[in-house]
């Protein structure tokens, strides 16, 4: 049995997932995530030592196509959906700033 998820764990995964939580949200999510993970503890009763994992329902293989030129998305149409664009490129705030 794995230890129960803590408030600190939730704060850590929120940070990893780029989400900012208020103190109240942190409290509520900690209780809810712990409940969900507690339910998953029923899996601890299973002997899975010799069972191989399934990641996907189909036997996945690489799919190749002939190297021919086909229609692709229109650049201007794609860029038109972006919040900020300059010189046909996506524009973002400074990546290297204070505190990074």
């Amino acid at each position: 049995m794995t230890e129960r998820i803590t408030r600190q764990d939730v704060a850590h995964v929120a940070d990893l997932a780029r989400l900012s939580l208020t103190d109240d949200e942190l409290d509520a999510f900690t209780v809810q995530l712990a409940d969900i993970l507690d339910h998953a503890a029923d899996l601890d009763a299973l002997d899975l030592a010799d069972v191989s994992p399934t990641a996907h329902p189909l036997p996945l293989v690489n799919v190749f196509r002939d190297d021919v030129i086909g229609p692709t998305s229109d650049r201007d149409e794609v860029l038109a959906a972006a919040p900020s664009v300059e010189d046909s490129q996506f524009k973002v705030p400074p990546v290297l700033g204070e505190g990074l």
């Binding site: 972006a82 919040p83 990546v95 700033g97 505190g99």
Partner: peptide, 17 residues
């Protein structure tokens, strides 16, 4: 970055969050 909502912030990291 590429589509949808953006909430502006001083750095890209803060903008993502």
């Amino acid at each position: 970055v590429r589509f949808g909502l953006r909430v502006d912030a001083a750095t890209s990291g803060e903008m993502h969050s």
